[in-house]
Design a protein around this nucleic acid. Structure first.
Lengths: 156, 156
DNA sequence: AGAATAGGGTTGCATCTTAAAACCAGATTA
DNA sequence: TAATCTGGTTTTAAGATGCAACCCTATTCT
C-alpha cells in the first residue's frame, strides 16, 4: 500500500513532515544551506540515487522550498536554490543538528562549530522560550483552551 | 534495495534523521509530548497500522527516545514514555510546527495556541540566536575553519 | 570536424517497506 | 464461561528505493 500522506491533516507538524519529513528532503535542504546548488553536487555529496534525487528536488520545488533556476547561457544547466520558505527551515535543521550532537555524538569527531559572522562567536543552542525569553521545556507548555501538553505528573 | 541508513554518517543531522527522520517517528514523539503513552492510543490518534507502530515504537525505544514501562499489575500492560533524550526533541518539534503554521496554514483552522504555564502567554517563535541573543539566519552563519555556510552572494 | 565528457534526467528491474486486515495469546470484564 | 481489551505477529498487494543502463543536449579535447 502507498505511504500515508498528511497533506490535509489538521496538524501543522504532520503537514510539515509531509513536505520535508522523508529521509532525504531535509538533508537536501541542509546541503543547500551549505551552498550546494547543482544536481551533480547534491548527488555526490549525499550519495543519493539519481532518480530519487530527481523526485525529491521536484517535490521540494513543487512545495516551494527550492526553486529551479536556469543558469545555462544557452540552456540546459540548472541550479536549485533555497526560497525564503526553505531558508526558514534553518531553526529546524539547527535544532536537529544540536540534538544529534548532544545525543549521538560522533565517536571520533568534534561537532561542527557554527559561528555568527558578526561576532565570530558560536551560535546559541536553539530553545523554546516563553514571552520573557526564559527557556522552557515540554512540561511548561499547555494548549490554550485544551488539556495540557505534557502532564502534571512526570510525563516520562 | 533497502533504504539507506546514516548511522555512521559524520553528519549529526543525518544521524539524527536516522533515528527520528521517517514519516511516523516524529509524530509519535509529538503525541507522546501531548501525553499519549499507550499503544492503542497512539494507534487511534495517529491512524497508523499496528505493525508499523510496533516497529517504530521498538526503534524509538532502541534509540533511547522512548522507554517501555510495564504498568500491568500482573503483566502485559505497557506504557511508552519519553526519555530525556525524547523530551529534548521539543525545540525540533516546535520549530517544525511553527514552520508549518507559517508556510502551510490550515485553510480553516487557527494554529495551536501554545502557552507557557508560568506566564500564560504564548511562547516565542523558535529562532537561532548568536551569542548576544540576536536572531540570525542561515546567511549569518559560517563553519569555523571552513568555507562559509551560505555564500557571499545571495544563496537563494 | 569528430570524439569524448559533463550535466540532468528517464527507464527497468530486484528488493524493501508500507497499509490493511486477519489472526493470536494473555488479562480483564461481564 | 464467553466476550473484550491489549499488544502484537503474519500475510498479501501495492508502493518506494537503490542500482545500473541508457538518452539527449551542451561543452571540451584532439
Amino acid at each position: 500500500m502507498a505511504r500515508k500522506r498528511f497533506d490535509d491533516s489538521n496538524c501543522s507538524v504532520a503537514r510539515a513532515l509531509n513536505q520535508v519529513g522523508d529521509w532525504w528532503s531535509l538533508l537536501i535542504v541542509l546541503h543547500a544551506m551549505y551552498g550546494t546548488r547543482r544536481f551533480v553536487d547534491f548527488q555526490q555529496e549525499l550519495g543519493i540515487a539519481k532518480n530519487i534525487l530527481c523526485d525529491r528536488l521536484a517535490r521540494l520545488v513543487e512545495n516551494g522550498v527550492l526553486k529551479k533556476v536556469d543558469v545555462g547561457e544557452h540552456g540546459s544547466r540548472f541550479e536549485y536554490r533555497l526560497t525564503e520558505k526553505g531558508r526558514d527551515l534553518f531553526p529546524v535543521v539547527i535544532a536537529l543538528r544540536q540534538w544529534g550532537d548532544k545525543w549521538n555524538p560522533a565517536p571520533d569527531e568534534a561537532p561542527l562549530d557554527l559561528r555568527d559572522r558578526d561576532t565570530g562567536q558560536p551560535i546559541q543552542t536553539v530553545q523554546v522560550q516563553n514571552a520573557e525569553g526564559k527557556p522552557i521545556t515540554v512540561r511548561d507548555v499547555f494548549v490554550s483552551g485544551e488539556p495540557m501538553l505534557g502532564s502534571k505528573k512526570d510525563p516520562a
